[in-house]
Design a protein around this nucleic acid. Structure first.
Lengths: 265, 265
DNA sequence: CGTGAGGTTGAAACCACTCAAGAAGGGTGG
DNA sequence: CCACCCTTCTTGAGTGGTTTCAACCTCACG
């Protein structure tokens, strides 16, 4: 409940000091709100952004129904957002990787709509939304950037909807791994080999499948030579095969990323 | 289709004159961008909004990949948006009823991401986005309202995702009819009895089901005394039963805050 | 070295899909 | 006005992909 407006104690500031504390220097600058802004504008933005204490695996960032105070940007780690459906049951809506904003769906009602939980040790920047709006009034470029980001989020939701609507379980999982790899690469991690921060149950919920189905298909993808998987450690063996299994998603993706070399090496 | 920048000829202006031509007088004011704005601000908004010639059933408002020029608000009728998936195949993403904005997902890339097609004779207001942004710079309330609307759209997408992820076909259809009824009522139509502007195939695609399944379940809902249906003419016989079949969606919308323990992960 | 959470694998059941045929409008031209 | 066609919708039968239920494995951790 509290925590949103908390002060950072000295210790944590020092601790975080090793990370870049300004948006200017942040390695995620190009993915985040500052993208496309002038230095002077970024400076105004910086003044309202503050870093939270890192969350441990399993800690909650916010819960549905809580008052909406901050938007958050993931700096490192992973945040899982879930939508409460029936009491005791929740649907995974998304996984938020470094550079990605979350909390946008709370703007409409002033209360969070979903639960946000750290799957890793995760650090985030908090951006008090009303302050952000005030800066945006004076910095049109920021306002535009905010809209662009929300719009991009919407496009991703629509792609996800299309996947849940028409694709087979096999395709869904392949598409999930494919886009996860792309996003990780974008945020600076190697996209070829990484560790899944989410459980099979999380993936299953996200893809609208049963946990066991995800498990089975994961081994099937491994058998097909598409990936190599050991518990949560994943390596993409053949990008071409993965793209194929995912239904060649490159055309649907908006970002004109260089198409990955499909070679195995 | 071009048409985005077209001028309204005299005839059409006269024709449309019978409808309220200003946002101030518009019956949808409370649902649309002007909601919450001062009269003076609405006036500024009005200056950039213009009405399009009504679209006939089956006419396209825009197509994916086209340059993004306008946002649109539905005044009357229905617009269906679809996302191209495989060549020759598309997934229905949403149905836009009077008072609802569309085109928001084009902001991110500057190109439309989906096809928008009129299911009825449909009239819309067009809002050139770059002009809207300029007005928003001078009218903070408009900027806030725009964000609120996008955010609301996002919440609806998430609800839809949750429905596709976990719910049975029966529940999905019930939920669809329930929310359709609610939205129609909100926009001034009677929510008890209305005509479905979309085909069974459209509904099926939207819900991630086969056309035949929708047809079967529609008659099943009728047999259960939930609805009465004759081709596209639909009447909701028992709201309580419908809500129940839909999984009591009202509780999710305004559930009281439940302060939970932090997640046992 | 037990314990438990997370993951894998198997067998059976089921829901929704596919294929297929037929019914019911709505429109068009004669 | 009727015959015809075409689209849309309904209904049936059979199939299959996914789920469910259940047992077992494996590793991390106290």
């Amino acid at each position: 409940m509290d925590g949103d407006g908390e002060r950072l104690d000295d210790e944590s500031v020092i601790d975080l000091g090793r990370l870049s504390r300004s948006c200017q220097d942040c390695s995620l600058r190009g993915l985040c709100l500052p993208d496309g802004l002038e230095a002077a504008d970024i400076e105004m933005l910086e003044r309202v952004v503050h870093q939270r204490l890192p969350l441990d695996r399993g800690e909650e960032l916010f819960r549905a129904e809580e008052e909406f105070v901050n938007l958050y940007v993931v700096r490192s780690g992973t945040i899982r957002t879930t939508q409460p459906t029936a009491p005791g049951d929740e649907q995974v809506i998304g996984f938020h990787l470094p550079g990605e904003l979350l909390g946008l769906d709370a703007i409409s009602t002033g209360r969070h709509q979903c639960n946000a939980l750290a799957l890793d040790r995760t650090s985030v920047c908090a951006i008090p939304f009303n302050q952000l709006e005030q800066v945006a009034v004076r910095v049109p470029a920021l306002q535009q950037q905010l809209l662009r980001i929300i719009s991009r989020e919407m496009v991703e939701d629509h792609n996800h909807l299309a996947a849940l609507g028409r694709r087979s379980a096999h395709e869904r999982l392949a598409l999930f791994l494919y886009s996860l790899s792309e996003r990780l690469e974008r945020s600076g991690h190697g996209g070829d080999q990484f560790s899944l921060s989410m459980s099979r149950a999380d993936i299953a919920s996200y893809l609208g499948l049963a946990l066991e189905t995800v498990s089975r298909l994961m081994t099937r993808l491994a058998d097909e030579g598409v990936i190599a998987i050991d518990r949560r450690r994943l390596r993409i063996v053949d990008h071409g095969l993965l793209a194929e299994a995912a239904g060649n998603p490159s055309r649907r993706d908006c970002a004109p990323l260089r198409s990955g070399r499909t070679g195995s090496y």
